[in-house]
């Protein structure tokens, strides 16, 4: 359809973005269009499936289920773009493993044959954030040029999450001790990125731990909240809706369980980009956030 320099990707949605924070989905589509990326529906996609919950029970089923999602994109002859670190682990990693391990691929294809599908290994998988950072695709300059309402004066901390960059030897992002590339993406919006202690620590939700032992998961989150509070961040941003859920709803749960209150707004990078490109809060469904985003909006609007 759009031959005018738009790069097209099959948009893998996952679960939590479309079904809990739909503003992330809406923002991803609209904001990407303004920087030359068109996200097309990946019809019939499912849960990635959840690497912690599913992978823990049987890695072979996890491979097969994730492969089915990849095959849907292969049928469109299109690379996948996605917006969640958990999905990235499933979709990127399984795609990569099956491309390079014949035994695994044959095993998966035996199962997929039952539903008339075959994994061929013809597409690649990307997180939208890495496409934004890549100067060949979008790059910081183009991103900054798309900003119509700079987030000037806002101090924003970054949570990288785990499964986008780690394990580093199965990824291509380099250093995982103190990366700064998402801070660059934040600075491109006119905001001031702030550093905090133990930035790369997990949000606490992964591996099925949020469901298995909520207090344990929240105690990890709370440690991050203490470190974030120390540096006076106005908001936390991330590129993973599951981390977002853990920080956003988690702050309410932390209040109930531990009695600590933070009130730190948590926004997916695409929601932040949407605001910076002039989208209104009601175009982002920010009212679905558990922690009131209003104090942050007052700062930037």
């Amino acid at each position: 359809m759009s031959g005018n320099n738009m790069r097209q990707y099959a948009f893998f949605l996952g679960c939590i973005a479309p079904n809990r924070y739909p503003g992330i989905e809406a923002a991803a589509i609209k904001t990407s269009k303004k920087v030359g990326i068109e996200l097309l529906p990946l019809k019939g996609a499912s849960c990635c499936p959840a690497p912690g919950a599913f992978g823990s029970i049987d890695l072979n089923i996890w491979y097969a289920m994730a492969a089915r999602n990849v095959v849907l994109a292969e049928q469109m002859n299109m690379d996948i773009a996605l917006i969640c670190n958990g999905c990235y682990k499933s979709i990127y990693e399984v795609n990569h493993k099956l491309k390079h391990n014949d035994e695994l691929r044959d095993g998966v294809n035996e199962v997929l044959k039952e539903i008339d599908m075959e994994f061929k290994g013809t597409v690649d998988v990307w997180h939208l954030a890495e496409l934004y950072y890549d100067p060949e695709i979008v790059g910081i300059k183009k991103l900054a040029d798309s900003v119509t309402r700079p987030l000037t004066g806002a101090k924003i901390a970054v949570h990288y999450g785990c499964h986008l960059m780690k394990p580093k030897k199965e990824r291509h992002f380099g250093n995982t001790e103190n990366p700064m590339w998402i801070e660059e993406l934040v600075a491109a919006l006119g905001a001031e990125p702030v550093q905090y202690r133990n930035k790369m620590q997990c949000c606490g939700a992964g591996g099925g731990v949020r469901g298995y032992d909520l207090a344990h998961a929240l105690d990890i989150t709370n440690e991050k909240m203490i470190n974030l509070q120390e540096v006076g961040a106005d908001a936390l941003t991330e590129v993973c809706p599951f981390c977002q859920l853990q920080y956003d709803r988690g702050q309410i749960e932390i209040q109930e369980k531990f009695g600590s209150t933070y009130g730190l707004p948590v926004l997916h990078y695409n929601e932040l980009l949407g605001l910076a490109q002039g989208m209104n809060p009601d175009e982002l469904a920010l009212d679905l956030h558990a922690v009131d985003v209003e104090p942050f909006l007052k700062k930037i609007l």
């Binding site: 499964h163 790369m200 992964g206």
Partner: peptide, 8 residues
């Protein structure tokens, strides 16, 4: 079952 699979 307490590993968050953070890969640190």
């Amino acid at each position: 079952w307490l590993c968050t699979t953070c890969y640190s």
